[in-house]
Amino acid sequence: MDYFPTLATRVSLALLLVLFLGAIGVYPSTAGADPPQLEKPKGERCIRDTNWMRHNHMDLLKHNRSLTVREGKRIRSESLLQCAGCHPNRDRFCDRCHGYVAVAPDCFECHIYPE
């Protein structure tokens, strides 16, 4: 019996090590940078509490999306098109924060944000 691991075993161990090092974060990160300043909204009040929106807007969008597409339920004030009423600039609102937290939603690959 060979005590020394085979070439294949050694290569896979090395690969695992590299992956592990990558996972614990040898990459440069933006942590510590100041949170981005988002554009002040125009309207008086958001359709939900601001703090709630900060954490849950994606659930709201996704939930309404399914309801609208599949059930034909359209709530006009909660439509994606209505966001622009208070947040007219996508770059200075959605994208700025999404860039900061490095989450890339693909809504706007198809949907057109009103300006």
């Binding site: 059930e71 034909g72 339920k73 359209r74 709530i75 006009r76 004030s77």
Partner: peptide
């Protein structure tokens, strides 16, 4: 005019 909420 479209209503606030409609459903199929």
């Amino acid at each position: 005019a479209p209503e606030e909420a409609t459903e199929a």
